[in-house]
Amino acid sequence: MIWELELILYLFLVISGLVALKVRDLLVAVVMMSVYSFIMALLFVSMGAVDVGFTEAVIGAGVTGILFVVVVYQTTRKSKD
């Protein structure tokens, strides 16, 4: 694999993880978790683990995102911050 491309992927991985931790809006955090999972799947595929990457893309970026969105809309925020 081209190492410059992998470096860019690692950079986006760290950025999306930090944004998911620091952001206030929970919906944005869920979307950033999906982006994190998808970049993780790309890295798995680039390291030769195609099956693991496939599972990560389907579960992490697909179904878990939908379930987290449902959880966000079923909970309410008590404090106004």
Binding site: V50, D51, F54, T55, V58, G62, V63, I66, V69
Partner: peptide
């Protein structure tokens, strides 16, 4: 080929959940 019952079943579930959402 890569994939199998678990990944394919999850893709089918993602299609059903997309319509449901």
């Amino acid at each position: 080929s890569p994939g199998g019952g678990f990944q394919g079943g999850t893709l089918l579930a993602a299609a059903v959940l997309l319509i449901r959402v």
